[in-house]
Design a protein around this nucleic acid. Sequence first.
DNA 1: TTAATAGTGTCTATGAGACACTATGTC
DNA 2: GACATAGTGTCTCATAGACACTATTAA
Lengths: 237, 237
Amino acid sequence: MNEETYLRDYDPKAFDSPLLSVDAVLFTYRDGQLEVLLVERSNHPEMGKWGLPGGFVDLDVDETLEDTVIRKLKEKTGVVPPYVEQLSTVGNRSRDKRGWSVTVCYTALIAHQECETHIDSVSDAKWVNLKDLEKLDLAFDHKSIIAAGRERLKQKALYSIVPAYTLPEKFTLSDLQHVHEVLLGKPLQKKSFRRRIEQADLIVDTGEKSAEKGRPATLYRLKPEASQHTFIRNLEL
Amino acid sequence: MNEETYLRDYDPKAFDSPLLSVDAVLFTYRDGQLEVLLVERSNHPEMGKWGLPGGFVDLDVDETLEDTVIRKLKEKTGVVPPYVEQLSTVGNRSRDKRGWSVTVCYTALIAHQECETHIDSVSDAKWVNLKDLEKLDLAFDHKSIIAAGRERLKQKALYSIVPAYTLPEKFTLSDLQHVHEVLLGKPLQKKSFRRRIEQADLIVDTGEKSAEKGRPATLYRLKPEASQHTFIRNLEL
DNA sequence: TTAATAGTGTCTATGAGACACTATGTC
DNA sequence: GACATAGTGTCTCATAGACACTATTAA
């Protein structure tokens, strides 16, 4: 048999295969805390429980897995997050009552201001503080996927400024430092933090100032290449 | 409808879903070069081409995705590699002529001595030098998956001693340094390299010596925790 | 003025890079 | 002895940590 014949007669349903889905851990930073977007499940299984935004690949619509996750995130938030990265793929026989199931997980970051109105307008999506997550009973193994996403973001805080994508486009260095401090669970030296960012030339002064209490802070914007940069020396844990 | 009824009537083939497979990039170090294990495809599509070892989840046999990849690697090498780590998942509409396809990719490392006899006994598996890979026309997008695996291993060489798993259980520091040098594509300072490994306390002196030309070198063994350790300061690129 | 927050100067400590040196084996 | 490879001593340099200092706003 030649390949042409094989492909013509190929039946994708001839063999049993795992259920395949995509999930996203979308983090943001609000009021000094990390939050994650949860969605209430409207279908079986685990209907009524809260879980990660995600779903199935639409073979007609999606070109890539990233298309799928972005489509799902846009449905829930109204926008495409500025940072989306594959986290890991979890697949085993026990995670879903329907049987062998595989989910390709992504970590995404966004400023909550970007999607506040859209999320407020629906009742099946909400930001949940990471500290309140313990008490909740999430669908499937989503709690451990969130833990993995958080752990990855913590590592990124040690050697990059990727956590900046949890902030609005214009942000202050104090805010960014605080995001890192929350992720790492320890205070950082202001001087060290600013020095390394300045040296790496990752941000641009917008010329604007933020006006809160005290001295106004310079508002910076990320350079496009900021998400790629890794420091050769980590912050200490 | 309650969940029980839903699950009883659930038909896993009701919806079209991507083809799901697992692939492994198994690296080793031989004669001063990096090599990757390739397998000749005995089935359509891309029959006759060489590609990565891998295959489909066996829903009855495999408990997890890692079980699948380890089963496939054991089929080809006869042993379970000492280091297996998920690399990334590639999924899109165009990578496989059969249609929308997803492959969960793993990087694995092994000493070629561990599986030499098994590989030599079969004709459909062989080690290929990374430098010879350019010329080959591999199946699917396997060439770019190998490139991604190699890139990941290069990063690991900067901040860990994970590349040590490409070596036999007992190895010399000179060999390990050379693996890192090949991965990084540049010579390293002997002193720096040994200092950081000694300080991190990642290896144990076996008491044995390797006898080649020149002064015999101490043979070390990895401590079990060595695969977890990350240096806070990277080697320079 | 004080309180609050932004931002800097500067010293120390750690660990990588450079490179010359010594050590131990074979011939 | 020469040669080859293993392994060390020690200086420099980059950069994170510590922490006290100055700067700029509002009330």
